[in-house]
Write a protein that binds this DNA or RNA. Structure first.
Lengths: 137, 137
DNA sequence: GTAACATCTGTAGTAGCTACAGATGCAAGG
DNA sequence: CCTTGCATCTGTAGCTACTACAGATGTTAC
């Protein structure tokens, strides 16, 4: 650590604040080896540099897109080893996109089914409910 | 147990087969009190009657619609106690429908974002990937 | 120096299953 | 009657991706 990097080191609290990733989650990512072990202060508190913050932000964005941690791990490995091609990344992402589309289709089916059943309900204060009827028989 | 009911009792394997619910899952539902404890054979094997099979099928259908076990538990309690109104059931279901719609909206946003990023990829066998670029910076 | 806050480690809990291990139950064939 | 082989049994541990503590320290501002 040189003087310049010391200046830019931040605590886990600041890191969490800036990336929007929970402190506990940051420690969890470290534990499972998704992010490297950070520097420590003399007392033992974690200290992160901008590079590590960038890495965490990347993970956050991938998570928001619904990627599994294992897939993110794969992305990071490829990037770290500078051993990836756009075709390869695009392929993984394309498959993920298909999964998302499949999920949307599934949910739409459920939505339709729910809507349909609810439309058959009288919504009265009586114990005759089409929704329950349909599902129970 | 009378002679008639004895005839219709089925093992957990048959129950699983007929309802499409995994054997382990049936035992899990029993453990968490979602389904009542079944009869047992002299040797100790579980035996189910049609009523219990119907209950399990109801749970299965609710799960397929994405209801949480806690909600299903609530449904069953209301039905068991014959203490429900259509309005009440419809209300719970309506809220669930809203959740499903919210999920669909979220997934559609992700789909769009993914599609957009992927369209910027050159898909070459080179390590310059728009997808990674966008997420890393 | 001390109060107040941040961070530390380690463990246990969440949902809804699933996957064993190792011991029995049970039904059919010889 | 006995064996073979499949079905079930109990109990525990694992999965994903976190989250929530407890109880002990680090750090900072006054």
């Amino acid at each position: 650590m040189n003087r310049a990097s010391e200046k830019t080191l931040i605590t886990i609290g600041k890191l969490s604040e800036r990336t929007g990733v929970n402190i506990e989650t940051v420690r969890y990512y470290e534990k499972i080896g998704l992010i490297p072990k950070p520097y420590r202060s003399e007392g033992g508190n974690r200290l992160y540099n901008p590079e590590q913050a960038k890495r965490l932000a990347f993970i956050k964005r991938c998570r928001e897109l619904g990627f599994h941690l294992d897939t993110i791990r794969e992305f990071l490995k490829l990037v770290d080893e500078k051993n990836f091609t756009c075709a390869e990344i695009a392929d993984i992402s394309q498959r993920h996109l298909e999964n998302i589309r499949a999920k949307i289709r599934d949910l739409k089916k459920i939505e339709l089914h729910m809507k349909d059943m609810l439309s058959q309900c009288n919504k009265n204060n009586t114990p005759d409910c089409a929704f329950i009827e349909i599902l129970f028989t």
